[in-house]
């Protein structure tokens, strides 16, 4: 074999990881912006209008399918890549000093991603499934109220899972944001330092905003 198809090559597959990763990052921006409406503390009025739009607008419906495809491609490629990586070193080292040359979260993207997937199952079960059921049965659905029900101190385990989820998200992004640009070949002496900075701030601010939602609801700051 002197050549190989793009999607069989290591670089092609990494580019799929990067593009789907950036697409999922763009989804995070929309998700956090809409959810941040609860911080207006108007009893969920603005938030429910926004979430009603997101769950009923036909354009968003189509994008939702794209979002699922994005997740599946991102996970499928990561499994493919990881399987090859495991085969590339059949005999392990007795001693490895990983921290001497790289960050722990850069080396743990698979574990962080798996934690995120577990969180996602819980998260979809909490919100996505009930919303779909309500729409299917033609009932009214108040997402703000279900948020308040789920994020109470009695459900401390949900809050713990959500916090674990956003911490995993933060570290996953801390590596993934800048890594996506590198995989796409976008490394530039003028712009890369900016990309790195934006990546760090993004991986702090977005998960922090998400983390504040269950916390502020559990402690009754948002009613």
């Amino acid at each position: 074999m002197s050549k190989e198809s793009f999607l069989e090559s290591t670089i092609g597959r990494k580019m799929v990881m990067a593009l789907t990763g950036l697409f999922l990052i763009s989804f995070l921006v929309v998700h956090v912006s809409i959810n941040a409406c609860i911080f207006l503390n108007d009893g969920g009025k603005t938030f429910n209008v926004a979430s009603h739009f997101m769950s009923h607008n036909p354009v968003i419906r189509v994008l939702e399918i794209g979002l699922f495809i994005g997740f599946i491609l991102h996970i499928y490629m990561s499994v493919k890549l990881t399987m090859k990586n495991n085969k590339a070193r059949p005999v392990k080292y007795q001693v490895v000093d990983g921290k001497a040359n790289s960050k722990w979260y850069s080396r743990s993207m698979g574990i962080l991603g798996s934690l995120l997937l577990l969180f996602l199952v819980v998260h979809l079960g909490n919100f996505w499934v009930p919303t779909k059921q309500a729409i299917f049965n033609g009932q009214q659905h108040n997402t703000f109220d279900s948020m308040k029900n789920i994020f109470s101190l009695d459900n401390w385990y949900f809050i713990a899972i959500y916090l674990l989820g956003v911490i995993s998200l933060s570290y996953h992004l801390l590596h993934g944001f800048q890594s996506a640009f590198q995989s796409l070949g976008l490394n530039h002496r003028k712009y890369s330092p900016l990309i790195h900075q934006v990546g760090i701030w993004f991986s702090i601010i977005v998960p922090l905003l998400f983390a504040l939602m269950p916390i502020s609801m559990a402690f009754g700051i948002i009613r």
Binding site: M1, S2, K3, E4, E8, S9, T10, I11, R13, K14, L81, K84, N85, K87, A88, R89, G98, N101, S102, K103, S106, R107, M109, H175, Q178, S179, Q182, S183
Partner: peptide
Amino acid sequence: VAQMDEEGFGNCTNTGA
């Protein structure tokens, strides 16, 4: 790149090591 892949090297995950 094709030869590199055929030799059984792993994929880059940009750790920088």
